[in-house]
């Protein structure tokens, strides 16, 4: 049982490597969806720890929101704006793979270290979620397209979701707040924001966002 947990979490963590390796934005979105599904499996396995109402909410959140709605919406944006690749990131992708791997290893190190130090967290959840958070920051920093920034933010948020699951004690409020953050992002995405941006600015590239500067 615990093994299956670990496998799922390592898979979620390693999926960030794939993201930092690939240039295709569709793959990013696929990874997002896969991560959502893995979260769904984790929630299913965690059944006995969560009360029933919360459980239902989490199922809806992971399976429908994270796995289906957000990826579908994002890929719609991609198709509408004819974007498919992240061209010329600030650092070449193979360096970012190495950086991402080091960060992942750092995450494992944190889990190992927190396993000894603290009793009140689940170590692997904790370490991997930290590595996902750092990796998504790297994605946001090194990529240029606005849509990639949004996707990177979604990864960041998945990391935070995992972090909120890492608290061993019963803390439904934290998990619920994490869900709220998700919905917040959903609104910020569904708020047609990216659509608006894309219709105003020719390319969805942050290089173009330079009318305001000092």
């Amino acid at each position: 049982m615990i093994d299956l947990f670990n496998l799922l979490i390592i898979l979620i963590g390693s999926s960030m490597l794939y993201v930092s390796f690939t240039y295709r934005l569709e793959e990013y979105i696929k990874t997002l969806s896969i991560q959502g599904f893995l979260f769904f499996l984790i929630i299913l396995l965690d059944f006995d720890k969560i009360e029933i109402l919360n459980f239902i909410f989490l199922i809806i959140e992971t399976l429908i929101f994270k796995t289906i709605i957000i990826p579908v919406f994002l890929s719609k944006i991609l198709r509408k704006n004819h974007i498919n690749r992240e061209i010329e990131p600030y650092i070449p992708n193979y360096y970012s793979v190495i950086i991402a791997t080091l960060v992942l290893a750092f995450g494992f190190f944190i889990s190992y270290w927190s396993n000894d130090e603290f009793q009140n967290i689940r170590p692997l959840f904790f370490g991997i979620s930290i590595s996902i958070i750092i990796n998504s920051f790297i994605i946001i920093i090194t990529r240029k397209k606005i849509i990639t920034h949004v996707i990177g933010y979604m990864f960041l948020e998945n990391g935070i979701f995992l972090l909120s699951l890492s608290i061993a004690a019963e803390m439904p409020i934290i998990v619920n707040l994490g869900m709220l953050l998700d919905i917040f992002v959903g609104i910020f995405l569904l708020g047609i924001f990216v659509n608006k941006i894309s219709s105003t600015f020719e390319e969805l590239n942050i290089d173009k966002l330079t009318t305001l500067k000092d």
């Binding site: 992942l104 290893a105 995450g107 889990s111 190992y112």
Partner: peptide, 15 residues
């Protein structure tokens, strides 16, 4: 690196 860290963690950590 991934293999190394998984193994490290499975020896010393909870895996």
């Amino acid at each position: 690196i991934l293999v190394l860290s998984i193994i490290q963690f499975s020896i010393f950590g909870g895996l």
